[in-house]
């Protein structure tokens, strides 16, 4: 999910994957499937039917979780690492669930019935739906030549206010403000204070901290 294809392409080239790597320049997979942060995933069966809805999809433990938080570190780094450690880690169980589904298909207890998939999908009210319209308006204006970035930022701010837990809307917009085009690495701190009056860590803390940052997979067997 990257507005600028080149931002994704160089990561794909470096990884040299054997599977299809697709670029969504309009964030349409966000509102179509429920991706509001990354990494998230859905499972689609051989018939094109979703059997698990969008949920956090880490499959290995981040080394940042085990990093020592030294007192000598700058305060922003300490805050960032503290909240990263607070993000729930479901990676081992989620990876095991994927493997189980790959082997057992519809017999896997992790493959859900259509009604369950719909029921577990993210709630959508008028506010979150309007956020999608605002974000798309911003994307359209930012993609014009020349880009109408001031107008785009106004629409993106509105999208962020309407859907505060949509991290892809925030992080895409913040990154465009904090990372020069063509940069090899993004601004880790995503401090968009000058443009958006906020930053990644400020919004994470405002949302209750790292514990609330991801849509954790519900891997309990379905009863009934």
């Amino acid at each position: 999910m990257d507005m600028r294809p080149a931002d994704a392409q160089h990561w794909i080239e470096r990884a040299a994957p054997t599977h299809p790597s697709l670029i969504d320049t309009s964030h349409q997979t966000g509102h179509l499937f429920g991706f509001i942060n990354i990494p998230m995933a859905i499972w689609i069966n051989e018939d094109g039917v979703i059997v698990r809805n969008a949920e956090s999809a880490s499959i290995e433990r981040s080394p940042l979780r085990d990093a020592e938080i030294s007192e000598s570190l700058p305060e922003p780094v300490k805050m960032l690492l503290t909240e990263v450690k607070n993000i729930p880690d479901h990676s081992e169980a989620y990876r095991a669930a994927i493997v189980d589904w790959a082997h057992r298909g519809s017999e896997s207890p992790y493959a859900l019935a259509p009604d369950e998939v719909i029921a577990r999908s993210r709630p959508r009210d008028q506010s979150t739906a309007e956020a999608t319209a605002c974000f798309e308006m911003g994307q359209h204006l930012a993609s014009q030549t020349p880009a109408n970035m001031d107008s785009a930022i106004t629409w993106w701010r509105r999208a962020h206010d309407l859907d505060r837990s949509n991290w892809t809307y925030k992080r895409q917009a913040w990154t465009l403000a904090t990372t020069p085009e063509g940069a090899e690495e993004n601004d880790l701190f995503q401090d968009a204070s000058e443009t958006y009056g906020t930053s990644w860590i400020r919004d994470v803390v405002a949302g209750g901290g790292g514990a609330n940052y991801v849509v954790g997979p519900d891997l309990d067997p379905v009863v009934g």
Binding site: M1, I38, P39, M40, I42, T168
Partner: peptide, 9 residues
């Protein structure tokens, strides 16, 4: 089977 993983830069 498709595991559609969302990622970004």
């Amino acid at each position: 089977k498709v595991l559609l993983v969302a990622w970004s830069s």
